[in-house]
Amino acid sequence: MAGYAWLLRLLLLLLAVGLGYAVLSLPDQAQGLQPDVLGKMDQSGVTHPVTAVLLNFRGYDTLLEMAVLLLALLGIWSLGGLPEARPESEPGPVLGTLTQVLVPVLIVVAGYLLWTGAHAPGGAFQAGAVLGAAGVLLQLTGWRLPRRAAGHPLRITLVAGVAVFLIVAALPLPGGRQLLEYDPNYAGVLILVVEAFATVSIGVTLAALFFGADPTDKAPK
């Protein structure tokens, strides 16, 4: 076994050296697609290049990636409920108070990140992650989704991001244009709509992943 570990390390070291050599052989100066992106920024509807790539130039990737997130949740739900983690102790007053203060703050921060994504670092995923953190905090204090919200309302919220994105993507098709080909005049508004729904769906999906089961399941073990 010891000889095997030694051999493995040697092979991995060789791999690292080989890959490192390949990386170092890349040219010193390269801009990739930056000039192309900057040249088309005025038609993208936003002013931040990363958001322009994510939601417009390569928006199709982002659409599929929303489907990946939804898929992870479907996968977890199809496992039929995870063994419940038993908290070591009841949530204390510190966690309770902290949650009361933090959750509203997190929601505001998420809204800000969503809005600022159009012209500065930020956007739907960062905002959704913050929203998801708020959901996790709430669950840690023992909060659970009310029964009447656990069925269709939850499911609709989970798919809203990808569904709205699909609708916006397909809108240009009847006019003979391409999938996701926004009219530059409305691109900014459409991107904001897509991102707003995506933020809520991402946040709720992340929180639901943490919960680990379909809340309408009869007996999550």
């Binding site: 697609l33 930056q34 992106v37 290049p49 990363v50 790539v53 130039f57 990737d61 990946v68």
Partner: peptide
């Protein structure tokens, strides 16, 4: 790698996608 120029945004977008995946 563009010296003083702003970084290429395309890999940044790819990484955000990659992180979600």
């Amino acid at each position: 790698r563009g010296g003083e120029a702003a970084p290429d945004p395309v890999p940044h977008a790819m990484v955000i996608t990659g992180i979600v995946v």
